[in-house]
């Protein structure tokens, strides 16, 4: 009798662990999938930024500080780019590139003769669209990360996360 009860209890424990494990995997996968949407937009932004920087570089050499910040941020993004889910370093680098790009756009807007060029205007419009899409993608990603964090950090998920080494995922701020 005791042996049967023991076996049933053991089975229940194994089932609970399997259920908790699957829930954690599901939450992590959802966060990774939504990151993929952010990632695609970040790649598009990274492709647009150097073209914008080239316009400023050609026209105004004295905006060197802004251009250096953009180049450094881009370099950091390239160095931290890894396949798979996002890392804290990558997210921080993307946040820095976003800020540097915003400053670059402000610089360009300070020179009406630059803004008047059709190519510049098109680039800025495209960049604004990407930033808008990115803001929405970021909201969805951060939500899924929050759900994953809730599952990972609360009991009994925290025990399973610890045992199976479920790493935290970074939030993506503006």
């Amino acid at each position: 009798m005791a042996a049967t009860l023991g076996a049933v209890a053991a089975l229940l424990v194994v089932a609970a662990i399997a259920l908790g494990y699957n829930r954690l995997v599901g939450a992590r996968n959802r966060a990774r999938y939504t990151w993929a949407d952010c990632d695609a937009l970040l790649v598009r932004r990274a492709q647009a930024v150097p073209r914008l920087a080239a316009i400023v570089q050609g026209a105004f050499d004295h905006e060197r500080e802004t251009l250096t910040a953009v180049a450094e941020a881009r370099g950091q993004v390239e160095r931290t780019a890894t396949p798979g889910g996002p890392t804290t370093d990558r997210v921080a680098a993307e946040e820095a590139l976003g800020a540097a790009t915003a400053r670059l756009v402000v610089v360009i807007e300070g020179y009406p003769q630059l803004r008047a060029q059709a190519a510049t205007d098109e680039l800025i419009t495209a960049l604004r669209e990407i930033e808008g899409d990115l803001r929405r993608a970021r909201m969805v990603y951060n939500r899924t990360v929050q759900t994953y964090a809730d599952r990972r950090d609360t009991f009994p998920g925290s025990l399973i996360a610890g045992a199976f080494r479920f790493a935290p995922m970074p939030y993506f701020a503006e």
Binding site: R135, R136, M139, V140
Partner: peptide, 8 residues
């Protein structure tokens, strides 16, 4: 209320 984009 805060509305946010929940998915696309």
């Amino acid at each position: 209320v805060v509305l946010e984009c929940i998915g696309e």
